[in-house]
Simulated scan of single mutants.
Amino acid sequence: MKFKRRQVEDIHINLTPMIDCLLFILVFLLLSTTFSQMSRMNLTLPDAQGVPPKQFDQKIEVVVDSSGHYSVNGQSLSSKEASDLNTAIKQISNDRRDLMFIIAADAKATHQDVIRVMDVAGQLGFVNVNISTKVPTRGY
């Protein structure tokens, strides 16, 4: 007796539907993702090529000396703490965040002291932050 042999079919895996689903999930995730802009701070670095300084009606100028002490609009702070700096800036700004915020740091001031001022400005929501520079003298 002769039995009919079964034909063995080759197994094929179709990956097209899986790729379609993955691309659909990727597009969905990209469209539904929101990006936080809380930590973004706009800085306008002045050009040090002799551009005349602009005059502003009201501004907040924080001076950082070489030892790391702060002065806000000419009023010296008693400590180097960020909380004291925060309080002084809040008092002067009167909740106005559109004022020009100028950081004038000594060349020998530490990077940490300048970053502390920038951090406080960012936390308070200032958008016009400038770092003042001076035009270098040329010795010809």
Rank of each mutant, 00 (worst) to 15 (best):
P53Q: 13
S76I: 11
H69T: 05
A107Q: 15
T133H: 03
M18I: 14
L29H: 02
S76R: 15
A82Y: 03
H69N: 13
L124M: 08
L15I: 10
I13D: 02
A109F: 05
A109T: 08
I19P: 00
P53G: 00
A109R: 06
N14F: 03
I115F: 12
K90N: 13
K80N: 10
Y70Q: 06
Q75L: 07
I92G: 01
M118G: 09
A48S: 15
K54N: 04
L45G: 02
L45I: 15
N128F: 04
E81S: 15
M41A: 12
Q123P: 00
H69Q: 11
K90F: 03
D20C: 09
I102P: 00
L30T: 10
I131V: 14
K4Q: 07
S32L: 08
Q112L: 09
V117Y: 02
A88Y: 03
I131T: 11
K4E: 11
Q123W: 02
L99Y: 04
H111S: 14
Q49T: 13
G74M: 05
E9T: 11
L30Y: 08
Q91V: 11
M38L: 09
D113A: 15
R138L: 14
Q75S: 08
N73D: 14
I92S: 03
D20F: 08
I115S: 14
K134Y: 11
V63G: 00
